[in-house]
Design a protein around this nucleic acid. Sequence first.
DNA 1: CGTTAAGTTGATCCTGCTCAAGGTCGGTGG
DNA 2: CCACCGACCTTGAGCAGGATCAACTTAACG
Lengths: 233, 233
Amino acid sequence: MAQFWDGCPPEAIEAIVSRVSEVRTIKAGEDLFWLGEPCETIFGLLKGWVILYRTFEDGRRQILHFALPPALLGFQAMPGLFMPYSAQALTEAECWTMSPGTFVELCRTYPDVGMRFTSLSLRDNSVAFDHLTNIGRRSAQKRVARLLLELFVRSRMHWPGHRGDKLTLPLTQEDIGDATGLTTVHVNRVLTELRRQDVLSFHYRRLQLLDPDRLVDIAGIDPRSTGLWTEMS
Amino acid sequence: MAQFWDGCPPEAIEAIVSRVSEVRTIKAGEDLFWLGEPCETIFGLLKGWVILYRTFEDGRRQILHFALPPALLGFQAMPGLFMPYSAQALTEAECWTMSPGTFVELCRTYPDVGMRFTSLSLRDNSVAFDHLTNIGRRSAQKRVARLLLELFVRSRMHWPGHRGDKLTLPLTQEDIGDATGLTTVHVNRVLTELRRQDVLSFHYRRLQLLDPDRLVDIAGIDPRSTGLWTEMS
DNA sequence: CGTTAAGTTGATCCTGCTCAAGGTCGGTGG
DNA sequence: CCACCGACCTTGAGCAGGATCAACTTAACG
């Protein structure tokens, strides 16, 4: 299992581990924290899928990011800042926890730990920019194709044991809609069309890539950006 | 003038300054770097506005972020990674420059510098999530209102000398469209309508807030998130 | 004062939304 | 093993927000 601190020197790892206050198990559907809360605990994801999201007054939702291990969630460098998003487990998840103050202290003592976090944070930033580009300027079909391709690739990197073109992703068509800025109904129509074109099928959480080349083509992936999904984790 | 390293210890600041390889002036409209380039130089913005953006094959563009001093642009923590976006000066701009390797070395030697960068990077992340939420789930009017409010507030924080409800922003209606995922034509119609409702006017780069309360209302700003624009810079 | 970038307006189209009803899957308890 | 239930998916009809295309106007700047 990939760890947040992979690649840091042994004494740093020991220091981190000794400061972990608790390893917590979160049930699927449970929230780790909410938008607007003060930042009192940070979560190092060890196992499972977690979504970062915001909700609107009227109940609509925007999914901002799909987090996989070894993501570090909920850290705000400035004390007193609030969480800029909510986090919810999509599957059962496991996290180590720590106070933000302890984490800052660790980053000061072991600069490698800080750099490691900075790397992850920059990567997240690029992924967010990717999503922004995806949602801002692309058709519904391209948005859905791109999201599913991203999740397929990232999932594969994390659990390399699996093979083949089939995969179970822990999300509903509603989740896809909330991540791509589309309604559930329209996501369904897009999926039906992609299935009809023998590109992919997604049905009750089971994703199958039928024609990966065409999928990459529809998704309009710039090969330079897939590096983001595969590096460092 | 706010500096990237504000708040770091004096010896760290001296070390940073001694390693700056060049202070570069960039003309309005000129690019600092392009998507897909290897990361050879990082830019510390000292003066001016810079946009981060991506372009599509067909010439369309998505603006990802409006950077103001003391942003640090173009840094990728992993050597060998490529720039995930292009950067262009909206106004004449001034940057200090440094090699990424030197910057990493500085972060190791002076953890405060690293933490400072991490803070800025996390803040950028939240802003990106803000834009994602804005574009993904909101009407054209709300998107435009929110963007202009953000830029008004951030601009005011940077040049606190100015007063009143008027301001010159260095962007065209096309830029607004590229940032909000709308066409120029539709941005114009939205602006016309906002003007008609006496909420704001934006004409040839001059922004005037006519009814700030109503603007905040239309923009649907969560007061918890405006902190992002005003903290730390 | 002429040139050019930027903004404005109208007509028309189409992608994706809304509302509503019905169908399918998978897990649970009997 | 089966029946049932709730979550999830599917499909249709009608609508609307924003896109597209095209012509024209206005402001800025040398």
